[in-house]
């Protein structure tokens, strides 16, 4: 039987090591799972973008008014006619300038080479070869949603 005295430094050192080990394991576990909890906490109002995206409120857009919006990396133009809402890619089909809404002409125009599109996105005059790409718009509970 060893004496207590001789054992003391050995066992205390061993206990110290054990403490570090246990603490270390606990720290490792916590280090793995605590960030996971923060990760799971919803960080934005919506998750990944895809499908219908909310772009504004119905009341914010006057009839025959328009708004420039950006969904993901796609610039778009949102129009309101007395009958419905319309959304088109704001990229002009001629050379890629961003189109604008002309309230007095009630047409979508491109500032670069005077291309004009009607409210259906069809080319009326000018160099653009194709109509603007349209996107589905839905209004739910006064909120405007556009499909990417």
């Amino acid at each position: 039987m060893k004496t207590n005295h001789a054992e003391q430094p050995e066992t205390s050192r061993r206990h110290f090591l054990d403490w570090i080990l246990k603490g270390g394991f606990l720290a490792t576990l916590l280090g793995m799972f605590l960030p996971a909890l923060t990760y799971l906490w919803p960080v934005t109002r919506r998750g990944p973008v895809g499908g219908m995206v909310e772009v504004g409120r119905e009341d914010d857009l006057a009839v025959w008014g328009a708004k420039k919006i950006s969904i993901g990396e796609s610039p778009m133009i949102l129009l309101r006619t007395p009958q419905s809402f319309k959304a088109y890619s704001a990229v002009c089909t001629h050379l890629g300038c961003l189109v604008e809404w002309s309230a007095d002409k009630r047409l979508i125009e491109c500032p670069c080479h005077a291309g004009f599109f009607d409210v259906e996105g069809r080319v009326i005059s000018g160099p653009p070869p194709k109509s603007l790409v349209g996107h589905t718009v839905r209004v739910v509970d006064g909120k405007i949603f556009v499909k990417l």
Binding site: P75, V91, L95, G96, C97, L98, P111, C112
Partner: peptide, 9 residues
């Protein structure tokens, strides 16, 4: 995209 528009302008 806006810069691109400026560039074309």
């Amino acid at each position: 995209e806006e810069v691109k528009t400026h560039l074309i302008e």
